[in-house]
């Protein structure tokens, strides 16, 4: 075979054919049906498919379906893989570019508006006070940056709507008491905002703090989930502290809150939300 291939990648026999097509006569492109017969090409493509499938299997990127939706929270990029929702990104924030890059580099992305429609409807429901569809939506944490962020975000999935935790409390809950700032970064680069509720993390002093999608969105989400947050952007006075293990909730100033360790506390929008989460009021401070 070797002696048949020649300079320019064109083997000797091609030049015999080239002469037939009078290759030098004009500058018209070669006729497209020249060469092998259709049936032979079909047979070759068929046999190539089997070899290619084998070779490609080794470095095939996972398939995801993605779309863009104008949700009530703004324009969102949404991507879903076989294991669940993979990415949600606010298109008007700096977080959108890394999401696009990560999807492009690591996945085979096909446009599928059904995914985007479903997410928009679930967000509509959430803003109307029903978080059940979002809670039930499976998530794929593959785009999470590392073990620290994974633990922080996994922990957040256990904070129900109508409740929040503090950055400090979350840091302590995942065994990194001095990792408050790292928690902040982990929340800011959450690949699945809304679905992994990083908006349910606030500052220990009662201010709602920052949000990757902007403070306005955090306010909308927390208000939709029951927090009567005013223009001061702080927790409302009726918010109560619930202890995860004892299932007792207290007023913020209660001696029990000050005694107990922070990781076990969640802050509920009000007594009603705490009761809804299966808690009972403290006998010392008598909240609600």
């Amino acid at each position: 075979m070797r002696h048949r291939t020649v300079a320019g990648g064109i083997p000797r026999r091609a030049f015999a054919a080239a002469d037939e097509f009078s290759i030098l006569a004009d500058d018209l492109p070669a006729t497209r049906d020249a060469g092998a017969a259709d049936a032979e090409i079909d047979a070759m493509v068929d046999s190539a498919h089997r070899r290619m499938a084998r070779a490609l299997r080794r470095f095939r990127r996972p398939a995801v379906r993605a779309g863009i939706t104008d949700s009530p929270l703004g324009r969102l990029l949404v991507a879903e893989g076989p294991r669940g929702l993979l990415a949600v990104a606010y298109l008007d924030t700096p977080g959108a570019a890394p999401a696009f890059d990560a999807l492009r580099a690591g996945y085979d992305v096909t446009v599928d508006l059904a995914v985007a429609v479903r997410v928009r409807k679930e967000i509509d429901r959430l803003l109307a006070g029903d978080s059940a569809p979002i809670d039930a939506h499976p998530v794929d944490l593959s785009l999470v940056a590392g073990d620290f962020q994974r633990r922080a975000l996994a922990h957040l999935r256990r904070v129900p709507p109508g409740a929040v935790v503090t950055y400090q409390g979350l840091a302590e809950a995942i065994g990194a008491p001095s990792g408050q700032r790292a928690i902040g970064n982990s929340m800011a680069s959450n690949p699945l905002p809304v679905y992994v509720p990083c908006h349910r993390v606030i500052r220990s002093d009662g201010a709602i703090g920052n949000y990757g999608g902007g403070v306005e969105r955090k306010l909308s989400l927390l208000r939709a989930e029951g927090f009567a947050i005013g223009s001061d952007q702080r927790l409302p006075p009726q918010a109560v502290w619930g202890h995860r293990r004892s299932h007792i909730f207290c007023r913020p100033g209660c001696a029990a809150v000050r005694r107990a360790t922070r990781p076990r506390w969640m802050i509920f929008a009000d007594a009603e939300h705490a009761c809804g989460a299966g808690m009972r009021p403290c006998k010392l401070c008598g909240p609600g």
């Binding site: 291939t5 990648g9 064109i10 083997p11 000797r12 091609a14 054919a17 020249a34 060469g35 092998a36």
Partner: peptide, 8 residues
Amino acid sequence: MRATRDRE
């Protein structure tokens, strides 16, 4: 096929 003139 046209460029290589060889099936393999």
